[in-house]
Computed example of a mutant assay.
Amino acid sequence: MAGKRLTGEALAAAVAERTGHAFSDRALLERALTHASARDDAGFDYERLEFLGDRVLGLVVADMLFAAFPDAPEGELSVRLNALVNAETLAEIGEEIGLAELVQAGREIRSLAGRKRVNLRADAMEALIAALYLDGGLEAARRFVLARWTARSRAAGAARRDPKTALQEWAHQAAGSAPAYAVEAREGPDHDPLFTVSVRVGGFPPGRGTGRSKREAEQAAATQVLVDQNVWTAQGEDA
């Protein structure tokens, strides 16, 4: 998260560059980019905005998927939606637009790593989407979401279930037991770790994966087993 806070015109210009929307309500924008650890005397932070942003994002993505995949059943649409609005996707898009550089947070929050950092960045993205909606209406939020989410919605593997969930279901059928995950290594500094995780299912060859969080590495390891056992294809579709 940012150490030196941008405010006023400088903040509005930075956000406009990243979102394509010029905010008229600067106080709303600053609130949307203030974590509770750095709230001002008025008590403003983005916690309430997260709630609204989550719903706005869900509506826009659901509408996008409904139009883009007219033959997809409800179950497939739900899988696609869940993958597009989860914390990992929100955090990735936040990274792409440099959102963390604009968020004001306390020092202890800026140093978070792993899953906590993913959640923090996802929350900030939801708050920004809410601010776009409140300042510019649904169309302003829609433009931003479509610009950043459309390509992901059509990417290989977008219709996949969560890999750990899919592996657990397959493991019970194929081996009668649950997958067993183990952290094999943790490298790098505390603020930017790299985890290596293995997963075993009965007597099948183990899968291994790496990631910036333990969960990300577990997902990668689960994906490897699913691909190796021809449950999923390497191109991103169920076999």
Rank of each mutant, 00 (worst) to 15 (best):
E76D: 14
A141H: 09
D63I: 00
Q229A: 11
G207N: 03
G209N: 07
V56G: 13
M125W: 00
A175W: 05
I129W: 04
A217K: 12
Q224F: 01
Q168Y: 10
T150N: 03
E108P: 02
A147M: 02
K4P: 03
L167D: 06
A87D: 15
V197E: 12
E187K: 14
R117F: 02
L194E: 02
W170R: 14
V199F: 07
A220Y: 05
F23G: 08
T233N: 12
R161F: 04
A87E: 13
R115I: 01
L167R: 06
A166S: 13
S37H: 01
V199D: 12
E88M: 06
L112T: 11
N86Y: 09
G211Q: 05
H191L: 04
V79M: 14
F144Y: 10
A130I: 03
R110I: 01
A122I: 00
V118T: 15
T19C: 12
G236V: 05
H21E: 05
Q229R: 15
R80S: 10
E76I: 07
P70I: 00
R121D: 02
G136R: 13
A2G: 14
H21F: 14
A171K: 13
T150A: 15
A68C: 01
E218Q: 15
G58T: 07
V225S: 03
A156K: 09
V227A: 02
A217N: 08
R5N: 06
P189M: 14
L77A: 09
A42C: 01
G114L: 03
L146C: 04
T34F: 03
A220F: 04
T19N: 12
A105Y: 04
V197H: 07
E139D: 15
A10M: 07
P205F: 01
D135K: 14
R154I: 00
R31A: 14
R31H: 07
G203F: 02
E88L: 10
A141T: 05
R5L: 08
E9L: 13
A67R: 10
L81P: 03
P193Q: 07
D25K: 12
L226I: 02
V118Q: 10
D190H: 07
V145A: 02
A166P: 03
H191A: 09
V197S: 09
G176C: 09
K214Y: 00
L52A: 08
E92M: 11
P205A: 14
P179N: 09
A130P: 06
G94C: 05
G98W: 02
N82L: 12
L77F: 10
A32K: 05
G43D: 07
A221R: 08
K116H: 05
I93M: 10
L84N: 08
K116P: 04
A124G: 10
P179Q: 08
L112A: 11
D40N: 15
R117P: 02
G53L: 11
V61I: 12
S37L: 01
A147E: 08
L84P: 06
D228L: 06
A72L: 10
A155E: 14
A36E: 15
R143F: 00
R26H: 13
P205M: 00
V225Y: 01
G176N: 11
A10H: 13
P163E: 12
G3Y: 08
G207V: 01
A130D: 02
L65P: 01
A234L: 08
R208A: 06
A13G: 11
F204I: 01
S111K: 15
A182V: 11
A13F: 04
A147P: 00
A127H: 04
A113D: 10
A91Y: 04
Q219P: 01
E187A: 13
E184W: 00
P73S: 04
